[in-house]
Amino acid sequence: MKAVVLLSGGLDSTVCMAVAKSQNYDLYPLSFNYNQRHSIELESAKEVAEYYEVTRHLIIENNMNEFGGSALTDKSIEVPAANMDSKEIPPTYVPARNLIFLSYALGYAEAIGAERIFIGVNALDYSGYPDCRPEFISLFQKLADYSTKASVQDKKEIIIETPLIQLSKKDIVILGTKLQAPLHLTHSCYRGDGIACGNCDSCILRLRGFKEAGFQDPISYDKKL
C-alpha cells in the first residue's frame, strides 16, 4: 500500500508521516519549494525523509511568492509576534496553499497508484487558517472523487487522511513521541532565521504543546515561554 504524505518538515507533518508509517504504508513524501521565506523547514523535510529511508522524496518547485499577500512568501511583510487571542487570520496565511498542495498530491497519488494522501492539518491548536478545517478537507475529498481517472473510471477512491485534525498540540507531541517520530529534526518557526524564534504563532503553539505534554522540545530557541 502506498501513501503520499505532504511533508513540510514541521512538527505536524512529521508526526503525520509517523502515523502513516505505523499503518504500514509505503511512504512517498511530497514537499514544496514555493519560494517561501526560508528553506530551513525544507531542509528538515529532507532529513525526515532520509530518517524514514523512503523510496523517493519528491520536491516540487513553484513560485507562490509571485502571488504575494503572505508574510511567509513576501519579505516586505513582517512575521508578527504571536497573538493567540486574535480572531483574525494572521498574515502568515498563504493564499490557497493547502488547496494547491493537495491538488499536486492528488495527481501524484494517481500517477503512482497510491490509495491515501496524508496531510497534517489541525483545527484545534493552529493559527486559524481556513484550509486546515474539517470542512475544507471534506469538500476537497468530494472534489477528488470527481476529478481523477482512478476514481471516475477505475472506481479507486484516493482517501485524504487527516489523523491530527482534532488533536491538540499536546496530543500531537504525545503521539509523535509514542511513534518515535524524529521530532529533533523538525523546524516550525515562521521567521526561519536559523534558530527558532520562540515568539511567532507556530513557535508558541509548539512550545506550549511540549510543555503541556511534559516533554522537553528537542530543538533550540532564541527565547522560550
Rank of each mutant, 00 (worst) to 15 (best):
Q23G: 01
Q23C: 04
N24Y: 04
Y25P: 02
Y25V: 08
D26S: 12
L27P: 01
L27D: 01
L27S: 06
L27E: 00
Y28D: 00
P29I: 11
L30Y: 02
N33H: 10
N33D: 15
N33G: 02
Y34G: 10
Q36A: 10
I40W: 04
I40C: 03
I40E: 11
E41R: 09
E41F: 06
L42M: 10
L42Y: 11
A49K: 05
E50D: 13
Y51R: 09
Y52L: 05
Y52I: 01
Y52Q: 02
E53L: 08
V54G: 06
V54F: 02
T55W: 00
T55I: 05
L58I: 13
I59Q: 06
N63W: 11
F67R: 12
F67S: 09
G69N: 09
G69I: 14
A71H: 03
T73L: 03
D74I: 14
D74Q: 14
D74Y: 14
K75N: 13
K75G: 05
S76R: 14
I77D: 06
I77Q: 06
E78R: 13
V79R: 11
P80I: 11
A81G: 03
A82M: 11
N83G: 07
N83P: 04
M84L: 15
D85M: 13
K87N: 15
E88F: 00
I89S: 08
P91A: 06
T92A: 03
T92Y: 01
Y93R: 05
Y93P: 07
V94A: 06
V94D: 02
